[in-house]
């Protein structure tokens, strides 16, 4: 039996990238974290994180193990999905320079490697509207740039050049930087609250 206020179960797509860091952050914030590599791993989760990594590698493996369609369907049904960096590219409706099918769930346009090569990777303190407290220390590694955000997308943080660094559309969350590389759990807590809201709604609907 599952209790109403037991911690949400959050899957972390573990095909490639820094999934272990996301799982550790979720556990630190009090969630249950489960690595997902196969469609059967998606059965018992309340939300899913697509981590940082190489977007070409992750999309390739999404297809090879038939994960793309099940995840797309769960996202379309309202299950929360958060993409960081490569994950944000995979979530984006338009992913410039990614010439493979991806999830294309969120009404944003993301350009890969938009800030240059690795020597141009950077870190910066970022004001995030959805988070209480001090600015968030944001780490951008060969980061994409969100060049367009649709009318239903809330912009949570922007860079000095005006491009979007964090955005939310309903139960979809995208960050072009890596909260999982810090010890600041505020983004993970925000996502856990989205997972709880989804689970409550799903349980109410099934009654």
């Amino acid at each position: 039996m599952t209790l109403r206020n037991d911690p949400p179960a959050i899957g972390v797509l573990a095909l490639q990238g820094d999934f272990a860091e996301h799982a550790a952050m979720l556990r630190a914030a009090g969630a249950r974290a489960a690595e997902g590599r196969l469609p059967s791993d998606l059965a018992a989760i309340d939300a899913l994180i697509i981590p940082g990594g190489e977007s070409t590698t992750i999309t390739r493996l999404l297809d090879l193990y038939d994960l793309r369609e099940p995840i797309r369907r769960l996202g379309a049904e309202g299950m929360p999905i958060w993409g960081t960096c490569a994950g944000a590219i995979i979530l984006a409706r338009e992913a410039t320079d990614l010439d493979r099918p991806h999830l294309a769930l969120m009404d944003i346009a993301a350009r890969r490697n938009a800030f240059g090569r690795q020597v141009d990777s950077f870190e910066l303190d970022l004001d995030v509207t959805a988070l209480a407290g001090p600015p968030f220390h944001a780490i951008f590694i060969r980061a994409p740039r969100i060049e367009r955000a649709g009318a239903t997308v809330d912009v949570l943080a922007s860079l000095p050049d005006g491009s979007v660094a964090a955005a939310r559309e309903g139960r979809l969350l995208a960050t072009t930087f890596h909260p999982e590389l810090t010890s600041d759990t505020r983004f993970h807590e925000l996502f856990m609250s989205m997972a709880r809201a989804y689970r409550s709604a799903a349980r109410a609907a099934s009654k």
């Binding site: 573990a14 820094d18 990594g53 690795q118 990777s121 303190d125 220390h137 780490i139 951008f140 810090t182």
Partner: peptide, 26 residues
């Protein structure tokens, strides 16, 4: 990796150098 950059944009830091390796994992 939590140190503040005091509002400045910092490149070539240890955090971004070791961070790329984190993205290559797996």
């Amino acid at each position: 990796n939590d140190h503040s950059t005091n509002g400045a944009l910092a490149t070539g830091t240890w955090t971004v150098k070791s961070g790329l390796a984190q993205m290559l994992k797996g």
